[in-house]
Amino acid sequence: MSSKNLLLIFTRNPELGKCKTRLAATVGDQTALDIYQFLLQHTVRITKNLKVAKSVYYSETIWQDDIWDATIYQKKLQSDGDLGVKMAHAFQEGFAAGFEKIIVIGSDMYDLSEGDLENAFSQLNNTDVVIGPAEDGGYYLLGMKTLQPSVFKNKKWGTETVLKATLNDLKNKNTILLDTRNDVDYYEDIENISAFKPFLKKYKND
């Protein structure tokens, strides 16, 4: 893969009571934090060997000594504003630095592999935009070769309308949709996935 490719990873600082709050409403803050840290480790595993540049955008503060190895990941802080403003700013920075294909993901997708990310970058050879739709009506991945400012504006972030509104913005662009995947927001998203059983067993025993 080309050094002209950039992967943006948006992450929350894994702090008790501040991450996976919708999940925490069912399983409690500590179990939600444990699950989030497990998801972060998965994200490191599927991204660290990708032959692309990688930037991790922290929600609160940049942590120097954490699971994101500073020799692999450039560490940055998310800008102020809603999610759209934050993502637009990160894409703008990337294009300004000379990158030609940029993809953003979150850091809590268990249902994502290194191969999926390689495929997404490859798809951008043949299209303007690539999107990974999430089962909840949002998306888990967004990639583009030139900045499409409209996709970051006028969205109700975190709702089931995001994907539809985004595709509406892109109706004049070539867009490839990847496989629909499940992201982890609620207890129901993970209750039947074996990898999460140890966490949920602990929660049920508390």
Score class of each variant (00 low, 15 high):
residue 38 F to E: 06
residue 38 F to K: 09
residue 40 L to W: 10
residue 40 L to Y: 08
residue 41 Q to W: 00
residue 42 H to W: 09
residue 43 T to G: 03
residue 46 I to E: 03
residue 47 T to K: 01
residue 50 L to M: 01
residue 50 L to C: 02
residue 55 S to K: 15
residue 56 V to A: 03
residue 58 Y to V: 09
residue 59 S to I: 12
residue 61 T to R: 15
residue 65 D to Y: 13
residue 70 A to G: 05
residue 72 I to D: 01
residue 73 Y to Q: 02
residue 74 Q to D: 12
residue 75 K to Y: 07
residue 77 L to E: 05
residue 78 Q to E: 14
residue 78 Q to G: 06
residue 79 S to N: 13
residue 85 V to M: 11
residue 88 A to D: 09
residue 89 H to T: 15
residue 90 A to R: 10
residue 91 F to Y: 14
residue 92 Q to V: 11
residue 94 G to N: 08
residue 94 G to Q: 10
residue 96 A to S: 14
residue 99 F to L: 07
residue 103 I to K: 01
residue 103 I to T: 04
residue 104 V to D: 00
residue 104 V to N: 10
residue 105 I to N: 01
residue 108 D to E: 13
residue 111 D to G: 01
residue 111 D to Q: 12
residue 111 D to H: 13
residue 113 S to I: 07
residue 113 S to W: 05
residue 115 G to I: 06
residue 115 G to K: 05
residue 123 Q to E: 13
residue 124 L to S: 02
residue 125 N to A: 07
residue 126 N to Y: 12
residue 128 D to A: 11
residue 128 D to R: 04
residue 130 V to L: 02
residue 134 A to D: 14
residue 135 E to R: 13
residue 136 D to H: 15
residue 137 G to L: 11
residue 141 L to S: 04
residue 141 L to W: 04
residue 142 L to E: 01
residue 142 L to I: 10
residue 142 L to N: 01
residue 146 T to C: 00
residue 146 T to H: 09
residue 147 L to A: 02
residue 147 L to I: 13
residue 150 S to T: 07
residue 151 V to W: 02
residue 151 V to N: 00
residue 151 V to A: 01
residue 159 T to I: 09
residue 160 E to K: 11
residue 163 L to R: 02
residue 164 K to N: 09
residue 167 L to H: 03
residue 170 L to K: 02
residue 170 L to S: 03
residue 174 N to C: 04
residue 174 N to I: 15
residue 175 T to A: 03
